[in-house]
Design a binder for these strands. Structure first.
Lengths: 333, 333
DNA sequence: TTGAAAGCGCTACCAC
DNA sequence: GTGGTAGCGCTTTCAA
């Protein structure tokens, strides 16, 4: 592959001049500029990004650590980050953290070795302390979907508890009194927070959630199916079910339907996330919207701002909003 | 950030020795090795990947050019590539081609500037000639979802035509005679090929697809809905509909249901792709499986093999397979 | 087993 | 406007 020297030699100018042309620098005669450009094309010259990064001490690259590209939720997250990277003409480097502490650490380290100028990290496995240390050592690193008070200004997060509360309040406002919950033991804190929010809302209204009304499952369709079967066998007589996420909710609806319950006429179901899926389900799923794409975009913008030395505001909390579709029925007006 | 010189100085050895330790090279005394390792930790030293890439003339990086992360189909593609990259301890660099010739070219150029050691490219907008030129200039570049005869050994592709044929044959084998098709004008050739396959299968059986039975729409749920409304207004009396992809099929089913047609009792529907969605739909969607993850994994493996000078076999054609679920009814046994 | 030094391709400074 | 050149952080000879 041709180097800058080859171009300089072929064009009969110095490497300095070629460099100026590459970088659209000033002070190059039109004649030389044209000539150099022509030679670059003829030789198929392509500047070496690594050499550039080495000498400028930074590469126009945005690193992203997260887990499962295949999961629609994470795909949307990645899509948001990619969009911002593209707008800013930055390369996107992706490392999978696999939701394990070792792998997440490894993923961050690799990206740091690449000298990415900015970093968006989705970490659920690393400790607060370790992330704080990373954040302090790397000014252009932003956390997404995580809230650590000491570095709050570097965290873009969702108030899961408020989401759980809102779901509970909404159902109660429609007259639901017997409410059940399909939660998850997914090894992150989100399910627990959503459940706590729900419990608090119900407790405040004097109709607390019975322990027996809570069922756990894997955070996917099958998990929702299994949990619902368990729930049904308890014969609770719930009129509404609050579910950890939309994927589980699809399983919930499926098992309810198979067992002769109509949704929402007999049982209302409310999901969480508002991934694409929720619009494909029948009935269309009422759910708490997790504005993950918007959050990912903000995280990426923040990281890029920080890398250029700008300061950012110190609160990036998002609150889930209710998306009313067809899976919840009003028991009264 | 500490450099190799800092480490060498602090450890009282030369940079050459430090380099040997970094690369697990031989010929370093245990004493020095331990000492250097300790110093690296103390200083928070992290090798500069750019400097390394510069001197070794290659970086352990796999580049991927494709379009929409958010689309489940592409997310699965990216997931497959990511998996292989991870297994081989390669970084993943992603560039969005946006299905436009200029952007796709730009995306490839950027990746080439990074001196990626291998490249997987999903291009629908660039011409055969241009891609052939790229492939010849870059031995470790592999195309996915595209078949160019001159560089067939570098193409991992799906026989869309065979998929259309198989769908048609299947429906006819179940006794369907009035078959309609919801296709797409998406600016790539896939829809056309699938339609041609279908037409051929029907023609061979002497029951050709009427022009009037073909409706086009955007390749998404809404497109499927609109196309189906148009189809219904023609009053064709079709007993089965072959749809371009699963997302459209969801729209097809939805409009059919809203208009009082039961699926599959009144009308059978068959999709294409077998994305996650097809299992969430009710009825579960019968569809032609596009083994995109497997294909993406093969493409990534191939690119990596090529980059290390290995040769690869010269045929990487995949054929869609029928996945029987619940949206197709047999009119006879 | 160790170190000195050349050089990867480029940018940016300084001199002209 | 232009060119010479130091040096970014690292690997890899070659000598010792």
């Amino acid at each position: 592959m041709a180097t800058i020297k080859d171009v300089a030699a072929a064009a009969g100018v110095s490497v300095a001049t070629v460099s100026r042309v590459i970088n659209n620098g000033p002070k190059v005669s039109d004649k030389n500029r044209a000539k150099v450009k022509q030679v670059m094309v003829d030789l198929g010259y392509r500047p070496n990004a690594n050499a550039r990064a080495l000498v400028t001490q930074s590469s126009p690259t945005l690193g992203l650590v997260f887990s499962e590209l295949t999961d629609p939720f994470f795909a949307t997250l990645a899509g948001g980050v990619e969009k911002i990277a593209r707008e800013h003409h930055r390369q996107l480097l992706i490392s999978n953290g696999l939701v394990s502490a070792d792998t997440e650490r490894q993923a961050i380290e690799t990206l740091l070795e690449q000298r990415c100028e900015a970093l968006v990290v989705h970490s659920k496995a690393l400790s607060d302390d370790e992330l704080i240390a990373y954040a302090e050592a790397n000014p252009a690193m932003v956390l997404i979907n995580r809230h650590i008070p000491q570095i709050a200004h570097r965290c873009v997060w969702l108030d899961n508890r408020a989401g759980g509360e809102a779901a509970g309040r909404y159902l109660m406002s429609l007259g639901h009194q017997k409410i059940a919950c399909v939660s998850s033991r997914y090894h992150i804190e989100d399910p627990q927070l959503r459940l706590e929010g729900l419990q608090q809302a119900l407790a405040e209204a004097g109709q607390p959630l019975a322990d027996i009304a809570i069922e756990h499952g894997d955070p996917n369709q099958t998990g929702g199916e299994v949990a619902t079967q368990n729930l049904l066998s308890k014969n609770l007589g719930a009129t509404a079910i609050v579910v950890y996420n939309d994927a589980m909710a699809s399983g919930v609806i499926s098992v309810l339907t198979d067992n002769g319950y109509r949704v929402p006429e007999d049982v209302s179901v409310i999901g969480f996330d508002d991934v694409l899926l929720s619009r494909y389900l029948r009935p269309k799923l009422t759910t708490m919207r997790y504005p993950i794409e918007m959050m990912a975009m903000e995280a990426a913008e923040m990281a890029l701002s920080l890398s250029s030395g700008k300061t950012v505001s110190d609160c990036h909390k998002y609150v889930p909003t209710l998306v009313k579709r067809d899976s919840v029925l009003a028991l009264r007006d």
